[in-house]
Design a protein around this nucleic acid. Sequence first.
DNA 1: AGGAATGTGTACTTTTTTGTCAAGTTTAGC
DNA 2: GCTAAACTTGACAAAAAAGTACACATTCCT
Lengths: 169, 169
Amino acid sequence: MKITAQEEYGLRCVLRLAKAESGAVTLPEVAAAEGLSVPYVAKLMSVLRNAGMVDSVRGRAGGYHLTRPAEEIGLGSLLLTLGEPLFEETEYCQKHAGSEAPNGVCKNHSTCTLKSLWQTLEHWLRHTLDQITLADLIQHEGRLPELLRERLAAAVLDDEPQLVTLTVK
Amino acid sequence: MKITAQEEYGLRCVLRLAKAESGAVTLPEVAAAEGLSVPYVAKLMSVLRNAGMVDSVRGRAGGYHLTRPAEEIGLGSLLLTLGEPLFEETEYCQKHAGSEAPNGVCKNHSTCTLKSLWQTLEHWLRHTLDQITLADLIQHEGRLPELLRERLAAAVLDDEPQLVTLTVK
DNA sequence: AGGAATGTGTACTTTTTTGTCAAGTTTAGC
DNA sequence: GCTAAACTTGACAAAAAAGTACACATTCCT
């Protein structure tokens, strides 16, 4: 449960695009700014491009730019496209059945308690991270911890309005 | 950013110990129950033992047991001992300095915005997960999602009492 | 046209993580 | 004491992730 290299560096590359208000940013520019190799940045951009997060322009005056404004890109979705979900939904019960569930029987079975845990955690984590946008990371550089706490707290309210009531003083 | 095999299986093994109210559980018992090989369970237990989460008794009537009651073992701490933190605090700025910080200069530098993000996220994630104990996982098997939401919401209150006020209806 | 600067895509090498193997140590029971 | 059942440890093999290499395609500029 750690941030993978692809998530970390991918996010950094996207932030470079977000900082360049308009106009395309080239692979060499991003690579130089982040201290990464050009081919590696190309690989990261390929992932982001296939996910529809960035667009590219080929040719001499080419480069990359975001497909949406930085204000609309939440960290939860972005990190999910760069990495993987907390656990693989498919095949989960087959793989972890254990001796008590030899036939792949799983529903409501005690062995699969953890599936509920991971599902809930996954949903909650992505939803909460989506409260923070790329624009936030750029604008509030100095006061990130404070901003984060506010947004995290707000996510609880947003997610379960009928269950809890939250008041920010 | 996904649950590692060691975290998943380690947690499952610990749950087996927690379910066996008193008395030791042997490696073969855990391995059979979870469908894992005995040597692999031994490796996982070794990690847990070195972290002080479980104790072992050698010899013919030996086995493993928890060092603390299941009610006192939070998921955040447990998963942290089984896996790794979200990011490595040490060497972080050296590795990710990029071209704008060639001399290792980092404090308050824009390139290190992400460090604040990961730190805050790490603290918040572990703290929140610690609201859920091993005993919770065993007792509330069927209604885990509801329990989780309550605990997650409560964590916000607990973490920042002066910032937010939370009311559970 | 042609060359230089750019992105695209596949295959490969290196590193890290997973999981196994095998030899050794401890202890209860006979 | 001896054996069987248990834990301990370090080295090893397999799989996945990270990062590189290289040949190729596209476009601008002259």
